[in-house]
């Protein structure tokens, strides 16, 4: 029973990630692409979590943490780029 739920969830998340991928490439504005990439990272974390539940292991928890950190820093850098055009400020204003 639970295995069927896992498989359906994986399928739905894969479709959602395809839609996000389309939005990240096609997205009319830069903000669309940033939100799509951030959500793609979060969905990937959930995907790995469900794979971990299917295989009944804890082996991929490091992968989830690293992905979460990288997605977080990427979102911050892209948001700062959209806001001001400069990611790394040289001096304090």
């Amino acid at each position: 029973m639970l295995d069927t739920v896992f498989l359906i969830t994986l399928f739905v998340m894969a479709v959602a990630m395809l839609a996000l991928f389309y939005r990240a490439i096609k997205g009319p504005t830069m903000s669309d692409r940033i939100v799509a990439l951030d959500t793609l990272g979060i969905s990937l974390i959930g995907f790995i979590g469900i794979v971990m539940m299917i295989q009944d292991t804890l082996a991929y928890s490091d992968v989830m943490l690293v992905l979460a950190i990288l997605a977080f820093i990427g979102s911050i850098a892209l948001a700062k780029f959209v806001e001001g055009g400069v990611v790394l400020d040289r001096t304090r204003d």
């Binding site: 690293v66 400020d89 040289r90 001096t91």
Partner: peptide, 24 residues
């Protein structure tokens, strides 16, 4: 784990500081 991925995570923590504040 190991030296490579640990170094990359330290670099990303310092990079977060650089992005959030400024280089100087």
């Amino acid at each position: 784990g190991g030296g490579f991925i640990g170094g990359l995570m330290t670099a990303s923590a310092l990079l977060l500081l650089y992005v959030s504040f400024d280089i100087q």
